[in-house]
Design a protein around this nucleic acid. Structure first.
Lengths: 218, 218
DNA sequence: TCATTAAATGAATGTTTGTTCATTCATACT
DNA sequence: AGTATGAATGAACAAACATTCATTTAATGA
């Protein structure tokens, strides 16, 4: 049941009309394709051919909108990082927070829910972490993001400690531990999805928070 | 003040006498060089040239003793993993353990001490984790190792819970959390060594264990 | 001392890679 | 309708790559 759209031409295989689109849109398109490629093939197997084909565009376009491959990869990391930070700040830098307990719950939900999308992001995240030891640019971007998350989490924990009048609790240490735990759980979800699912990961993280702040989480 | 060692030849630049060595020794030499290269340049920038030069050997030798680059990389991951597992089993599969409390302390020491060497190993570890999503071989090796660590840690925690008659403690959940915490701390040590040192990381991990098993750790 | 064996070498090979740029053509303005 | 602009294309290119293999040479035994 062929649905010929142009009966005049004899089966020209996918003529693919050329489109002109604004720079920002093309950049986003290429970054999205890069994320999918890294998740599917790994960072070291991500080539310009693969990325541009995945984006449905021509080979030369990535060098037109980003100067080089290195730049495209850096911008991709920056994008994923910024996205995560914005989500985090939406919860932790809220000017009118509902309550400390609710904020804690939101944080947990944010870090350990989200469907398949987040799974792709995790793959990207750790691909760059793996190279961070060797590439100062990656290290700078990653550690700047980590530091922000650490500061904000620490501030939240300090407020909770003060509010609950908890004794013998160090906000900085608890924040370091909590964020490390979340990273570790993400890693397990990525590498051994058979042994750990999101529900159990969330239960583990919640248990940590319950030990720390029993009055603020159910 | 030139210290000519061979005055008979006119400054032959490093003649480098060829040596014949057993296969196992060459393999180890190449694996060690691979580890150093990955730590210094990252997995994607680790070439055969770099590895063989780092080992002080010729270009073709890696393909002689390992069949291919892919095989060399796989064997390197296997080596690092095996080394870690042996250290872990030395503590957790000890037939005559000193005491549960001492075993816990040993575990903590093992996972968060060790000088520069371990730092190189961490870089390797995470470089492979980053690619694990795309390469089934890496995923298999990593998750098999993780599963072993999980089983042994869980068994230890079960014994401790029983011994201390702790209530409302789930050994599996605590083990998952503890190992994720250790992974996360390693990651922080690797990516943001300025924000976290080994002493603080150890304090964080110890705090987790203290919350879980207060009678078994100081 | 010489012959034999196989480990070690590195120049050569074919493939893959990021990047360039002359050409094409969609779009907007006159 | 005609023209100017620059986004998009992909063939072509040089550099880098893993791998091969003819040659060299250390080690061994006769």
């Amino acid at each position: 049941m062929p649905t010929s759209q142009t009966p005049t031409t004899i089966e020209q295989p996918e003529k693919k009309r050329r489109q002109v689109r604004p720079r920002s849109e093309r950049r986003q398109q290429l970054i999205d394709a890069t994320i999918r490629c890294i998740a599917a093939h790994g960072l070291s197997a991500t080539t310009m051919q693969l990325v541009t084909r995945e984006a449905g565009l021509s080979l030369g376009i990535a060098n037109l909108h980003f100067r080089s491959k290195e730049n495209l990869l850096t911008e991709t990391l920056r994008h994923v990082t910024r996205e995560y930070n914005e989500g985090l700040l939406g919860i932790l830098a809220n000017d009118s927070p509902p309550s400390l307990a609710a904020t804690l719950e939101q944080l947990l939900d944010f870090q350990l829910s989200r469907g398949v999308t987040q799974r792709q992001k995790m793959a990207v995240w750790f691909a760059y972490y793996g190279e961070a030891g060797a590439r100062p640019v990656y290290q700078t971007i990653c550690s700047a993001s980590d530091r922000l998350a650490a500061r904000k989490t620490e501030a939240l924990f300090e407020a909770i400690i003060s509010d609950g009048q908890y004794r013998d609790r160090d906000a900085r240490q608890l924040a370091t531990g909590y964020l490390a735990l979340i990273d570790g759980l993400w890693l397990s979800l990525l590498v051994a999805p058979r042994d750990l699912n999101k529900a159990r990961a969330k239960a583990v993280a919640r248990a940590y928070l319950q030990q720390a702040f029993p009055k603020h989480i159910a």
